[in-house]
């Protein structure tokens, strides 16, 4: 997760997904569509080389969802 909703009320929740394209991505997109039915999700999909090329994880200070869940709910 990244973006303004980490620190304050934002318009939406920004999530970065790094992974392969093709079938796994289609499946994931369907699941995210269901998860986001009642949530303003903004999901950015990147291939692993793209994540590396852009340095997005570091530059945007992305926080792993698991870590975030642990810190909120112990």
């Amino acid at each position: 997760m990244f973006g303004s909703s980490l620190v304050r009320v934002g318009n939406d929740f920004d999530i970065l997904v790094v992974g392969p394209s093709g079938e796994p991505l289609s499946r994931l997109k369907n699941e995210i569509r269901l998860a986001g039915k009642n949530l303003p999700l903004d999901v950015l999909y990147m291939l692993p080389p793209e994540a590396e090329e852009t340095g997005f994880v570091l530059n945007e200070k992305c926080v792993p969802l698991l870590e975030l869940a642990r810190s909120r709910w112990g």
Binding site: S21, L25, L44, Y45, M46, L47, E50, T54, F56, E60
Partner: peptide
């Protein structure tokens, strides 16, 4: 997108 990706193009 912030960083236009292959996925965004497809």
């Amino acid at each position: 997108e912030y960083e236009p990706t292959a996925e965004a193009v497809r």
